[in-house]
């Protein structure tokens, strides 16, 4: 196999290093937006207003039933048609966040449902306010199932960011493609990009597991 270390160190790693920053930024930004968006979707979906909950349920179905890449293209190419022009990175982050917020909403819902009904009733019988019931009783008990699931979505989002290369966001996959076509050498750039994803995923998975163990220990059942 033809692998050139000088090319790797002089060209590939410096350029990918810069692009890796974009990948990490896109991941973190999408994830944070998805966390908040998921909460909003979950609250709207369980709204007492039938119209609202119906609309949100259908919206979630729509997002889930279409590929993320299509949504990224949709936001990037079609929003300008209605007068909204966003930079590729911004529209890409919004698309990934939107897609994952529907998944987060489901995680929140499942986490809350995992808390037995009796806990709500005990809190009510003890006259705790709704806020206190959530803050002190319900949320602490729903975190152990919720946090690992969210951690997995963080890793999933990270692995989805290469899709942004389709709308020319300068993340790591895009950068390695550019290097490849500039120098007619793909081996090093694509391999290093792959290794980057592998290492980051393994490290984050380990972190998620640590948090999981910590939570499990903090709540005894």
């Amino acid at each position: 196999m033809d692998w050139r270390w000088d090319f790797t160190f002089d060209v590939v790693i410096p350029r990918l290093w810069e692009a890796a920053g974009v990948t990490v930024y896109a991941t973190v930004a999408s994830f944070l937006l998805a966390l908040v968006g998921g909460l909003i979707l979950m609250l709207l979906k369980t709204s007492k207003n039938r119209m609202v909950s119906f609309a949100v349920t259908e919206f979630i179905e729509l997002i889930r039933a279409t590929p993320l890449l299509v949504q990224i293209f949709f936001l990037f190419f079609l929003l300008p048609e209605v007068g909204i022009t966003l930079p590729p990175l911004t529209s890409g982050i919004i698309a990934i966040a939107l897609y994952n917020s529907t998944l987060c909403a489901e995680v929140y819902r499942a986490g809350l449902q995992a808390v037995p009904r009796g806990q709500w009733e005990a809190a009510m019988a003890l006259n705790l306010s709704t806020y206190r019931t959530f803050r002190r009783i319900i949320i602490p008990q729903s975190l152990p199932p919720i946090v690992p699931a969210l951690g997995n979505y963080l890793i999933a989002i990270f692995k989805e960011t290469p899709l942004l290369s389709f709308v020319a966001v300068g993340e790591i996959m895009h950068a390695s493609k550019l290097i490849g076509s500039e120098y007619y050498r793909f081996t090093e750039a694509v391999t290093i990009a792959g290794v980057f994803f592998l290492v980051m995923s393994l490290v984050s998975a380990q972190l998620v597991r640590l948090v999981e163990t910590y939570l499990q220990r903090s709540i005894q059942r």
Partner: peptide, 9 residues
């Protein structure tokens, strides 16, 4: 309650 419903945490 029949099922105690203590707060497990």
């Amino acid at each position: 309650f029949q099922s105690f419903n203590l707060f497990p945490h």
